[in-house]
């Protein structure tokens, strides 16, 4: 149920905070975020590093709620308000990665998510930084193609 609520809250946040005029510019970033989510979901099916348990949703459906909810919306808002300089961007990444890791901590605490094998919260935190840097880099790449 938490994943469904999170999905609804994400899209509400987009409706309130998202600049809809920038959809043609920012939707590839949202898609890239969902793309990474789906890629990890496919890998996790065979090489399980984490899993979700959130009734009434089945284990295979929970990732889809995240891939179509919080991931694209967070990526959209992250890039929409992205500062110009890299110094400020580091602070910006720190702010968003802190939010991401706190959410994951809550998921673990309430047993909605479990880590397996060698995966840990620290590796998740490093991954969050990598993902946010990738979001910026791919945005800068395709932005030039739009002129």
């Amino acid at each position: 149920m938490v994943s469904i609520i999170l999905f609804i809250l994400s899209w509400l946040a987009f409706l309130v905070l998202g600049d809809k005029r920038r959809v043609p510019e920012l939707f590839p970033t949202a898609m890239f975020s969902a793309y990474l989510g789906l890629l990890t979901d496919l890998v996790m099916k065979e090489y399980e590093l984490w899993s979700y348990h959130d009734q009434p949703l089945s284990e295979s459906v929970i990732p889809l709620f995240l891939d179509f909810g919080i991931y694209p919306v967070v990526a959209y808002l992250f890039i929409q308000f992205l500062p110009q300089t890299w110094t400020k961007r580091l602070g910006w990444i720190f702010f968003w990665s802190l939010g991401a890791i706190l959410l994951e901590y809550a998921y673990l605490k309430f047993e909605l998510m479990q880590h397996h094998r060698w995966w840990s919260l620290w590796i998740s935190y490093i991954s969050d930084w990598v993902i946010y840097v990738l979001l910026i880099l791919q945005y800068q790449f395709y932005k030039k193609g739009r002129g």
Binding site: F27, P28, M31, F32, Y35, Q138, F141, Y142, K144, G145, R146
Partner: peptide, 9 residues
Amino acid sequence: FREYYSSLL
């Protein structure tokens, strides 16, 4: 490549 990026993705 930059123009087609979103299509490839």
